[in-house]
Design a binder for these strands. Structure first.
Lengths: 351, 351
DNA sequence: CTGAAAGCGCTTACAG
DNA sequence: CTGAAAGCGCTTACAG
């Protein structure tokens, strides 16, 4: 039913070798022959199958994107960037979803690992973009060293300490921007709700870096760091709610605070709900900044000031780093840190 | 680098034919031989490449999902369902994103068509799930008649009149539920903001069916249909805002209304913002129901009562209908209408 | 019970 | 300038 190169060859009265030459713009084909073949291809809408093109070269012209779920905009945006960049290449995208939450339980890690092994051992892809926490990081680093094309997009900072290509967000400077903004508005006592600083026994760099940015912004402004103004959440809305509650309860006996930096938007929203219930107005009584720029931010009232990450661009770059590996076998591990952008909305105002 | 069936055969001292027999659980293999091969496969983590398995059968064991973008939760949810259902099959998922908005301009349609032709002519997929408006519907119907496995998921009702397999939402009954709910709360004057009833020259069934459900709910309750209570939007938040404004302006000289059925959530949200600005409280002065159940609904205040569509399940069924076509060559076009669920939140209350 | 050979749709030396 | 042949990794008749 579908046309093959042999069908084209038959119609043109030549061998498939010649057709292949024409398709691939190789020299040494008679102009007449070339034109005739081109005309037939045009008429029949023949498009060579990239998978078959790969066959002889022991590749598939397929790349995989493996992620843990499509909840929330981060991974969806990454997928959009990846897909968009890939559409102008010869590669097609295989989508794999392990469908596990993060943080991940040992059983879920186990399942994910099996999924990963299977993807790789199947040999259906020439390379893989991972946006997927794994426990077996050493295995991946080895795989990469052995020449399997691999790029990580890192939403939780879980691969950044390994010698593999990683695309990540400059969480430190993003937090710095956010807290500088608050300080610039005249706030002196600024609380922070951090993300989980550790999962299992390994540090969550995302959370750690955002905390570090917070601390350094205070320091450069000559403001003291006060551990009473720090609460650790887990990136969920509920934890934002309970953390701000704890901070406020503590603050009643301390000197209070007038601004909050939440390490992600969901926690900022949870905190704003709690503030609202306590009769504290945002931004009049409390300025709030989040991190992520999820679509929700623009809809809630007041709209949330936050830090935007160029996730789509990160996806695109990941594709480029992957293709480079596939085609040039360049194995220099690269870390790329993407800059963030402060989005000022209505949840912050001068003290 | 990657293991092949020949590597396994070599290690086991047999031919690849025998290994193939073992992998595929064919009879007539000596128990000893079988066990030995199984052991080697186990040790080496060999997994046959599904693409190569397909090769000899002129298939690829790949199915495609072609959609117009990943904005908003509908198509993301569909993708999740598709991916999840596929993971327990031998098929892998190729993701294609035409990256056009809907409604679509002629140029975008043109681009989409070219994309579609290319996907199909390339021959990389055994079948395709479309969540993608196209202008060339006849071409697709023919393609399907000729035996190319195709399933449509229909978010705008654009393919429902063609003789192809379509999975869609029971928009009529969803609207019926929504308006019955309002009537049950004692509302007698209920306004509606419809979706676009026509795009280009073809009816948008989604909008038409929701309007029909609204009308019939009124009729069965013995309430009159009043065209002064109908405004046509385009599913955008802005159109919700402007439609409710128009309705209210009109209503000042008419007999008013106490409830609103917006044909999607975004328009409901736009309307709620307008009501708020006019000093009308939801749900005290006006009950509002939407349609879609986007994640936003639970975050806005008041949380929005709406109609939920089982999109993920629709994706799963689409996969089953596709695989059935691929494997059984069954060509009975099926239309499946998925039931909706009314989600009652805080935006509606008794009159 | 087992294997050699052909074939799926391409490309790539190689020969002419 | 052009084509026959081998090969990529599987499966499927067919032969033994």
């Amino acid at each position: 039913m579908r046309l093959t190169i042999n069908d084209i060859a038959k119609r043109a009265g030549v061998s498939s070798t010649t057709v292949s030459r024409v398709i691939n713009n190789k020299p040494d084909v008679d102009t007449k022959t070339r034109e005739n073949i081109l005309k037939i291809i045009e008429e029949t809408n023949y498009v060579p199958n990239p998978i078959m093109i790969g066959l002889g070269k022991s590749k598939t012209n397929l790349v995989g994107f493996f992620t843990y779920n499509l909840v929330g905009p981060f991974r969806v945006e990454a997928l959009r960037g990846i897909s968009e960049r890939l559409s102008s290449s010869q590669y097609q995208l295989l989508f794999y979803n392990s469908n596990v939450p993060f943080p991940t339980t040992p059983e879920q890690y186990e399942r994910t690992s099996r999924g990963l092994f299977e993807i790789i051992n199947k040999g259906s892809v020439d390379g893989l973009i991972m946006l997927q926490p794994v426990n077996d990081k050493t295995y991946l680093a080895e795989l990469y060293q052995q020449g399997f094309p691999l790029v990580f997009i890192d939403d939780w900072g879980y691969m950044s300490q390994f010698d593999v290509p990683v695309v990540e967000v400059d969480n430190y400077n993003g937090a710095l921007q956010a807290v500088r903004h608050l300080i610039g508005l005249g706030h002196q006592r600024i609380a922070i709700i951090t993300g989980p600083l550790e999962v299992g026994s390994s540090a969550v760099r995302t959370s750690v870096d955002r905390l570090a940015g917070y601390k350094d912004a205070l320091k450069e402004a000559g403001l003291p760091f006060d551990s009473a103004l720090v609460a650790q959440g887990d990136f969920s809305e509920e934890s934002g709610y309970s953390c701000i509650t704890a901070l406020l309860d503590r603050a009643e006996t301390a000197s209070g605070f007038t601004a909050l930096f939440a390490s992600n938007d969901l926690m900022a929203i949870g905190a704003m709900n709690a503030l609202n219930e306590r009769g504290l107005k945002v931004p009049d009584d409390m300025s709030v900044v989040g991190f992520d720029d999820i679509p929700l931010d623009a809809y809630i009232r007041p709209a949330l000031t936050t830090v935007r990450m160029p996730v789509k661009e990160m996806g695109k770059l990941a594709v480029e780093m992957l293709i480079e590996q596939i085609e040039c076998k360049t194995l220099t591990a690269k870390k790329v840190l993407f800059p963030t952008e402060l989005i000022i909305r209505a949840s912050t105002k001068p003290r």
